[in-house]
């Protein structure tokens, strides 16, 4: 905590990594500033050193190769909403980015990396990326490593935000005919989410052959509802199947959040509602071009 913090703006990823490796605590990595500036303005965060990674070219750009879409961590929400590759290969990510809170000014500055590094349970991007099986590439102390986003979210010593830099997000392109939906429930237009669900589904002759389902904003971590989805495989999406899913999901919420986005009891019940709605919408979309 310093009254007169330092500010550094490295020119390359290597330089940034080297700089971070040489620092002890008290530094913070900043890019779009939409996550940490409110905390700093509020006095809840008082870093000694700001490392501005906004100039790192390695963290920019969206490309596709071998069925994997690579998205630079500095990509802002607005780009995710409008990029042609994302729209075609990862439409659920584009949709989730457009549902994120804040107006256009925020979407123009808020980065994909900042959103993920926050690991905020109410945010919209992570559930969509988890449902799509995304991986991430990060650099720490000069070493590059690739891991699944799901695994990263359970790590406690990844060092993102102060020691490690999130470089890129790598997402398998959605297969043709994949049904998908991102469902978000919030108390009012300007509110954070109270419950959200990201679902993908594959159908074959009216039967579900594969499905993923992530439920966010109801617990301190995003819930992988694979256990609830299991029973759907090989089944048609019927009223009974929908009811089963809605009943199973709340049971996965062990310790619901209870705050001004809604009471725990309600959040737990809503986990089932948004899950069912997301899956129903994904099924309806499946097979359509």
């Amino acid at each position: 905590m310093s009254l007169y913090p330092s500010f550094a703006r490295p020119n390359s990823l290597a330089q940034a990594s080297e700089l971070l490796a040489g620092l002890s605590g008290g530094s913070v990595i900043i890019a779009g500033g939409q996550e940490i500036m409110p905390y700093i303005n509020h006095g809840a965060m008082q870093p000694d050193i700001y490392i501005d990674i906004g100039g790192l070219k390695e963290l920019r750009g969206i490309s596709e190769a071998d069925g994997v879409v690579s998205i630079g961590a500095l990509t802002v929400h607005r780009e995710l909403q409008g990029n042609a590759i994302v729209a075609e290969k990862l439409p659920m990510l584009a949709d989730a980015a457009s549902r994120a809170g804040g107006g256009r000014q925020v979407h123009n500055r808020a980065t994909l990396g900042g959103n993920l590094v926050a690991m905020h349970p109410l945010y919209d991007i992570a559930p969509a990326l988890l449902a799509l099986g995304a991986e991430v590439e990060l650099v720490k102390a000069g070493e590059t490593r690739r891991t699944s986003l799901a695994a990263l979210m359970h790590e406690t010593s990844h060092g993102l935000g102060s020691e490690a830099i999130l470089v890129r997000v790598l997402v398998p392109a959605m297969a043709a005919g994949t049904g998908w939906a991102y469902e978000k429930l919030k108390l009012s237009g300007g509110a954070y989410g109270s419950a959200n669900a990201a679902a993908t589904v594959q159908l074959d002759a009216g039967r579900i052959t594969a499905a993923t389902l992530m439920i966010g904003a109801v617990a301190d971590r995003i819930i992988d509802a694979a256990a609830a989805v299991q029973g759907l495989i090989g089944q048609a999406w019927t009223a009974a199947a929908a009811e089963q899913l809605e009943l199973r999901c709340p049971a996965l919420v062990k310790q619901p959040l209870s705050d001004q986005q809604g009471s725990g009891e309600w959040r737990q019940a809503m986990a089932g509602v948004v899950a069912r709605r997301a899956m129903a919408a994904a099924v309806a979309r499946a097979g359509q071009k």
């Binding site: 409110p38 108390l187 009012s188 237009g189 300007g190 509110a191 954070y192 001004q260």
Partner: peptide
């Protein structure tokens, strides 16, 4: 419908920012 100032049982105010005190937007 939704604007509210909340406290915990010890009287500390929980509503401290526009994250929690949400006024209507045009869409509402």
């Amino acid at each position: 419908m939704f604007e509210a100032i909340a406290f915990d049982s010890s009287g500390r105010q929980l509503t401290r920012s526009f994250m929690d005190y949400v006024m209507p937007r045009s869409e509402d």
